[in-house]
Amino acid sequence: MVMPAMSEKERRPEDDGRDFANAAWSIPSYLLAGIILYGGAGWLLSRWTGVAVFTPIGVILGVVLSIYLVYRKFGR
């Protein structure tokens, strides 16, 4: 019998279930937070400067940052 490879810490099967549930319930919340935060900042910047393009830039920056965060946190 070949033992399955273990990561540094010993993992129980229920850990995977918990990690999956954690990720599944946090990811939409992170995406929303990124869009609201940086989209909102961009929108404010647009209002101050009168340059409309800051709003979409902020939204896109927010999406990119939250996807990066989710990837680093849950992507292993």
């Binding site: 992170y30 990124g34 940052l65 680093r72």
Partner: peptide, 23 residues
């Protein structure tokens, strides 16, 4: 969250805060 480049925390910490404590 550990293991990220230092400068990026400035951008990511507010997302974590908003996500965990408000949304």
């Amino acid at each position: 969250p550990p293991g990220l480049p230092k400068f990026i925390y400035v951008l990511l910490a507010p997302i974590e805060f908003l996500s965990n404590l408000i949304i």
